[in-house]
Design a binder for these strands. Structure first.
Lengths: 337, 337
DNA sequence: CTGAAAGCGCTAACAT
DNA sequence: ATGTTAGCGCTTTCAG
């Protein structure tokens, strides 16, 4: 590998000058600098990020902490799309990304240790158990972090607007005449709590009563669980006319169950999803859902993180809310009069 | 950050001894080694991968080159699932992964340059344009590579069994009585070429004739394009009884079109997908498709790459074929009398 | 304007 | 069994 020394030798200059030329340092004769750069290019010089890091303490590497639990975090479109956006935005700014994990070879490393080991300049945290002591250790460390869909005190976060989202959904189905609205929750996270609270609040404001049996425990991204909850809802004497699912994917489990009962969507029952995965537009009927702007969320989180990394003193922690929008599909029937 | 020197000072020993203790070097008194390790632990020592790399030339970092073209490579389940598997298997072996790209900050880096810049020990290449000079430069460089679904001479590769897959599909639908089988191609890649060839061959062996108008140009993962091809096929005087799609996702575009024509799957027409995405099992009817074992493909590619990295002399390039299996869904009708 | 030199944290000969 | 030392490739102060 050609290194600075090689260029220096070839040019008959010192490595210091070469280094300066390569960085466009001004206190170097522009002619010489130009010459050095041309030689460097000709020799196929590629800087060594690790060597530079050792000196500068900057890796231009962003850690990404995604859930490992189901070991399939990347397969959820909300996250894979976000990850894609994080990757793009990072690269646009000259950063690479490194996944932070803990099952690292033989020795267990905590998330923080892994981040340190790889010298990441900062970490984006999404889709993890935010109560995990390891996550807390990382957030409270000296490494800049941005969390997604969760707030830590005095730390920046980017959150999808779950309050507004759930509210929009309730208002929409209410507008179409629904007053018996069931709600299937996702796993017990702060996102879910926000959605549940927003659901109740929106109903209350519209004068909709919500019997306890209309609100079911469920899981994100597990169609089977939503299917079971759906079955229970359909077996109620006082059936809901509309069911709100935790996400588009698990909504599909509901559909299967609904059809098993010989019912049709939306004629016999209306359903609403969440996320707005691509499939929601492809499936027949088109799924009515709240589209989360995962691309924007990813992008914003990178921008905020880099801002924090590059201006540690002047950047203030911030809570960035990213709006989504309601996608009016064909799974909610207008039952007015 | 606590470093080796700090531990050495605290123990009153030399940094060499500490380094040795940390690596379990045998020529150190087991007692002292033990002591050093306990102190290291107590002080919260975390090794610095970059410093080590500088000396050892090993980063324990694997580069992953995924397509950037549509900038959504990660959103295809076949790839996101593969990536997840690559990540898991890498971590299990003490490696991290780094995405290789070229739009890197201001200055354009070629894939090879990026790989060098980050000192990756090897690269897994998937879902790219394998004719791209930059990809070729990378493959032909001194950096170990493993390609997925494409073979380079004298380089290891892991390929999904497209020949067998397409053959299985044809034989299956033939068994159910189909003799008028249409085929929508994906983008013109070597994978597609294999599938097309296998399709023709299987048909020939079964005595099935394939009119030219039954074979359509298409694209992977673009439902709309498959929809158009479907429309053309449905407008033929001599309609096919079965259509084979390039993938499950684009098959959905076909379904939309079929329904527009007032036809039903599988009663009026049979369809088959490819990939076996999770949704294929959730959608109604369940999609008949060939399931590619993306998890195994990812895993094998990492294993082969690491083997190549760690035993450069003794590892021989190899072409690993990963089998899939036919998922008998409900989208192909038995039309035997 | 250019160069010498120190040192980032670590490893690995080579001494002792 | 333990320590000394020379770098890995790069940046950066400080001299010249």
């Amino acid at each position: 590998m050609v290194k600075i020394k090689d260029i220096a030798d070839r040019c008959g200059l010192s490595i210091a000058s070469v280094s300066k030329a390569l960085h466009g340092d001004s206190d170097l004769n522009e002619k010489t600098a130009e010459y050095i750069r041309s030689v460097a290019k000709e020799m196929g010089y590629i800087p060594n990020a690790s060597a530079r890091l050792l000196k500068t303490k900057r890796s231009y590497n962003i850690g990404v902490l995604f859930v490992d639990e189901t070991s399939s975090g990347l397969e959820h479109e909300y996250f894979s799309s976000m990850l894609n956006s994080i990757k793009d935005e990072s690269e646009k700014n000259g950063y690479d990304i490194t996944f932070i994990s803990h099952h690292f070879g033989e020795n267990h490393l905590t998330f923080y240790e892994h981040a340190r080991y790889r010298n990441v300049d900062g970490v984006i945290i999404a889709s993890v158990d935010f109560k995990d002591p390891e996550v807390i250790q990382l957030v409270e460390s000296d490494i800049p972090t941005v969390t997604i869909d969760y707030d830590f005190n005095e730390k920046s976060s980017v959150v999808s607007d779950n309050i507004q989202g759930e509210k929009d959904i309730v208002e929409y189905v209410h507008k179409l005449g629904h007053k018996k609205i069931a709600f299937i929750k996702g796993d017990d996270t702060s996102v879910t709590q926000k959605r549940v609270a927003s659901f109740y609040k929106a109903c209350e404001e519209l004068g909709i009563e919500v019997p306890d049996e209309y609100v079911k425990e469920g899981r994100y991204h597990i169609p089977k669980v939503s299917g079971e909850a759906t079955r229970e809802l359909l077996s109620l004497k006082n059936k809901p006319t509309c069911i709100i699912y935790p996400d588009d994917y698990s909504l599909l489990g509901g559909v299967t169950e609904i059809e098993k009962h010989g019912m049709k969507v939306p004629d016999d029952i209306s359903i609403v999803g969440y996320d707005g995965i691509k499939l929601s537009r492809l499936s027949r009927p088109i799924i009515t859902t709240y589209v989360q702007d995962s691309v924007e969320i990813g992008k914003k989180s990178v921008q905020k993180l880099i801002e924090t990394i590059e201006n540690p003193k002047t950047t203030i922690a911030e809570r960035i809310i990213v709006k989504g929008y309601l996608q009016e599909g064909q799974t909610v029937k207008d039952i007015n009069n």
